[in-house]
Nucleic acid binder design. Sequence first.
DNA 1: CCAAATTGGTTTCATTTGTAACCATCGAAA
DNA 2: TTTCGATGGTTACAAATGAAACCAATTTGG
Lengths: 153, 153
Amino acid sequence: MTSETANAPEILELESFLPYRLYRLADAVSREFSKIYRDRHGLTRPEWRTLSGLGQRGRMTATELGEQSAMHKTKVSRAVAELERRRWLVRTPDENDRRVEHLTLTNAGLAAYREMVPLAQSFERELLAKLGVDERAAIVRGVAALERALEAK
Amino acid sequence: MTSETANAPEILELESFLPYRLYRLADAVSREFSKIYRDRHGLTRPEWRTLSGLGQRGRMTATELGEQSAMHKTKVSRAVAELERRRWLVRTPDENDRRVEHLTLTNAGLAAYREMVPLAQSFERELLAKLGVDERAAIVRGVAALERALEAK
DNA sequence: CCAAATTGGTTTCATTTGTAACCATCGAAA
DNA sequence: TTTCGATGGTTACAAATGAAACCAATTTGG
C-alpha cells in the first residue's frame, strides 16, 4: 500500500464536508428568505409553511400539513394556533372522525398568501439568476438526487 | 399577451420551492449525521463544530471559530465553555491582547476528534455512494455555485 | 494624553424548539 | 361490548437559540 493515502493525517476539512456545507447554505438561504415573510407579516417559518401549504392545497388537516412541509406536529399545532388567532384560518371538525380538524384559509389568510406568492417566486428567481444555466441544472439535479437517496433509507 | 401564463393561478408549489427543498434536505442530512456525535459523545452541533474546527486547525480564537464554522458568537461561547468543562480544550490568554483567548484541544479532546473523523468521513462517503457519478458532481457543483452566489451579495 | 468608538467574549432574557406525557377518539380484536 | 393499541392533536417542561445588554481591553482621533 502507498503510504500517502493510507497514513493521510486524519483531519476533516469542515469547509468541504457536505453535511456542513449543505446546512450552512440552506441556513443562509432560509434566513434571507425569512426576512420577507417576517418583515411583511411577522410570520415565523412554521407559520409561513402552514400558510403556504393551505394556500397551495386549499384544505388540510394538521397531520397532512406536517407531512407536506416536514414539520413536527408540535410546530404545526402552534403555527395553526397562531394563524387561527390572527383569523387567517378556520378549523372545521371532520364529520366522521371527531379527532380530525380540517383547516382552511379565511379571506384574510388567502390575501396574505396571494401577496406572498410573487415575493417568494421572485426571491427564488433572483437567487437562481445568479447562477449559470448549467449550474442551475446542477443544483436542481443534485438536490433531487439527495432527496431520493434519503427517502430510500 | 396570452392569458395562460399571465393569469396563472398564483400558487406556490412548496415541494419544488428551492429554499424549502434545500432546508429540508440539509435538515434531514444534519439530523442523521448528528446522531453520530450525539450518540457517541453527547455533543450538540455547536460543540461538534467547535471540536472539528480545533481538530482541523489546531489553535483558534473564539472569533475565528465563529467565522470558520458559521456560528453566532454566543453559540461558540457556550460550546467552548462546555468543551472546557469536559476538559477537551484549554484556553490560553494571548500575549499581546488580553481580550483574546487561544483555544486548543487537550489529549482527551484530540482523542475524541480522531475518533470522530473517520465516522464523519464514512457518513459522507456512504451518502454520496447512493448517487450516480454525475449526480455527485451535480450536487457539489450546485452547492458551490450557490455558495458563491450568496457570498457575492 | 484622554474620550469615544471598536472589538473579543460572556451573560441575561425572551422566544423557539424538541421530547415526552397527555387527552380524546377511533379501530380492531376478543 | 369491552378492552387495548393506534392515531390526531395539544400541553408541559427542559434545552437550544438569538438579540441585546454588558464587561473588559484595545484602538483611534482629537
